[in-house]
């Protein structure tokens, strides 16, 4: 559980970076929530409470390995090294956004960081991950793909097709199931007869694990193992990370379907707090450093907000750009 030994292969800097990234995601989402009125889109999904999964997972791969994300993608974006300013500007629909204000919160992507996009369709990331993995395999690049999806997506037909094909072709894909207990308001136990999704792995001919998704080190270690297998031609693994969405489904969700007791219980299992305690106990950081990191993080978030606010809106005359690589003449255009 959250409290074991820190992995020896990670340097102090790397261990601290894990903390910084989780905190950056947390503060980012808090800021977005606070500024909800300014953003105006109700379709903004926060990753608060689930930070350990994206950060632990991305820690286990190389910079040029790929990830696909979900509609709840800010955390994955930050964890993969995406720029917070361009993320914030995208959520505000500005030209300086990572997708030039065309995509918004549900479509943040940074292909230069091999972050292949948040995706508004539940379960649509894994089929795409197959192809990226296949390309890597065909070109002998040795790159792997982490594909994140939720307990809701787990019941999509696309997931079944993807896990089967990945196993049949031994593709270097790691299926990371973020079980945050709810598909919007529907608890996963009401949508599924099994307790742990990982038992499905066996039916596809791959290994499956259920782990504490709030323990960043456990996430890192488990995924690292799966990555090593995938990179060496051993095919895919399914890793179910149990976690909890602290906020509603979107920032407009009044979230009346979950009890305050339940939410409180999970807040007590905060992944960031638990990891901080471990770092202090391991004498990796002290209170002064914690304070510094906290302040630096807040400055970064303030800067990103300022960047987004001062950034210009997209020029309406460019609204038809990028439908195709080169504009075509047809119909209404």
């Amino acid at each position: 559980m959250n409290g074991g030994e820190l992995p020896k292969e990670l340097s102090s800097d790397e261990l601290i970076n894990i903390y910084k990234k989780m905190l950056l995601i947390r503060k980012f989402e808090q800021r977005i929530t606070k500024d909800f009125g300014k953003i105006k889109s109700p379709l903004v999904h926060t990753y608060t409470g689930e930070e350990a999964i994206a950060v632990g997972a991305c820690m286990a791969i190389n910079e040029d390995d790929y990830i696909t994300s979900t509609h709840r993608g800010h955390g994955h974006f930050i964890a993969k090294g995406g720029d917070v300013n361009s993320l914030m500007a995208e959520i505000y629909g500005k030209e300086g956004g990572i997708c030039k204000g065309r995509g918004g919160s549900m479509h943040v992507a940074d292909f230069s960081k091999s972050m292949l996009g948040a995706n508004g369709i539940v379960g649509a990331g894994p089929p795409l991950a197959l192809g990226v993995a296949l390309a890597s395999k065909m070109r002998n690049e040795g790159k792997v793909v982490l594909t994140f999806f939720g307990d809701g997506a787990a019941n999509q037909g696309m997931l079944h097709e993807s896990m089967n094909l990945a196993a049949a072709w031994k593709l270097p894909v790691i299926f990371i199931l973020e079980n945050n207990m709810y598909g919007w308001s529907t608890p996963f136990h009401a949508a599924t007869a099994i307790k742990d999704f990982s038992i499905r792995a066996q039916g596809y001919g791959m290994k499956g694990f259920t782990i504490d998704g709030n323990d960043v080190i456990e996430v890192y270690k488990t995924i690292k193992e799966a990555v090593d297998i995938a990179r060496n031609g051993g095919g895919p693994t399914l890793i179910e990370c149990k976690t909890y969405r602290w906020q509603g489904q979107t920032i407009m969700d009044p979230d009346k379907y979950r009890s305050p007791e339940e939410k409180e219980e999970w807040k007590n299992r905060c992944p960031i707090k638990a990891y901080k305690t471990r770092l202090i106990r391991g004498e990796i950081i002290d209170k002064v450093m914690i304070q510094e990191i906290e302040e630096m993080t807040l400055v970064k978030i303030d800067e990103s907000f300022k960047f987004a606010k001062e950034n210009k809106n997209p020029d309406p005359s460019t609204v038809l750009d990028n439908v195709y690589k080169k504009p075509i003449k047809y119909g209404g255009n």
Binding site: Y66, F111, L116, A124, P126, P127, L128, A129, L130, G131, V132, A133, L134, A135, S136, M138, G157, M158, E161, S162, N164, L165, A168
Partner: peptide, 20 residues
């Protein structure tokens, strides 16, 4: 491929995104 049209196209589209 298996009889999995979403996986077939997902795989093709993903590979295209990766430069194939």
């Amino acid at each position: 491929t298996p009889i999995s049209e979403n996986a077939i196209l997902g795989c093709a589209i993903g590979a295209a995104m990766a430069g194939m």
